[in-house]
Write a protein that binds this DNA or RNA. Structure first.
Length: 186
DNA sequence: CTATAGATAATCT
DNA sequence: GATTATCTATAGG
């Protein structure tokens, strides 16, 4: 497997969310292995794109393979990978990473020592990787980003998504089986 | 271990 | 004015 998986992100969002488990995500050389994702689609009441395009979610309707970054609860940035055809409005939320590269940098940004809680949540991983508004809408195939899929699909956990109030029962949360870096147990 | 509240501000109605 | 794809600290079993 060589090159950025543009074709994968141009297709349906659920397979893309599954394929991202085990991928390596770096920002300026800092990051690790993706161990938890969630899928969001335009016909999905829990999705930001459900009610059409607004100022905040414009990147979600942009080209696939780009980032959609937004602030939630007034203090946490969250990182998504835009999927589907441009203008469609689907994305994969990156919920947790296993820290691999630049661990000391991540520790400094987070202000903690414990590896297990460095990147195990969407807000936490953005703080650890330094992701914020400036990354909204940019291409994940180009610097400062680096995204490489796993060679083989690992064993996956599947469950309902976290922190939403509508379409609560869709089994669109995916995790790496046995990982100690998940944001919550399945 | 689980449960709960409070922080905090952009975005949308 | 209400809502929110969260995190942390603290209290209780």
């Amino acid at each position: 497997m060589v090159g950025f998986p543009r074709a994968l992100f141009s297709g349906p969002v659920e397979p893309a969310a599954r394929a991202l488990i085990g991928a390596t995500l770096l920002v300026d050389g800092v990051g690790g292995t993706v161990v938890e994702t969630e899928a969001y689609a335009p016909d999905d009441a829990a999705s930001h794109s459900f009610r059409g395009m607004t100022g905040r979610n414009a990147a979600m309707f942009g080209p696939p393979g780009h980032a959609y970054v937004y602030l939630c609860y007034g203090m946490h940035w969250c990182l998504n990978v835009v999927c589907g055809v441009e203008g469609h409005g689907s994305a994969v939320l990156i919920r947790a990473l296993a820290p691999v590269q630049g661990v000391e940098t991540m520790r400094e940004r987070r202000g903690i020592e414990k590896l297990a809680i460095l990147c195990n949540g969407p807000g936490r991983l953005c703080q650890a990787l330094g992701v914020a508004r400036s990354h909204d809408g940019i291409d994940l195939a180009a610097p400062p980003f680096s995204l490489v899929l796993a060679e083989r699909e690992p064993d996956l956990l599947v469950g309902p998504r976290i922190g939403i109030t509508r379409d609560v029962d869709r089994p669109w949360r995916f995790g790496l089986a046995g990982s100690p870096f998940l944001s919550r147990r399945f």
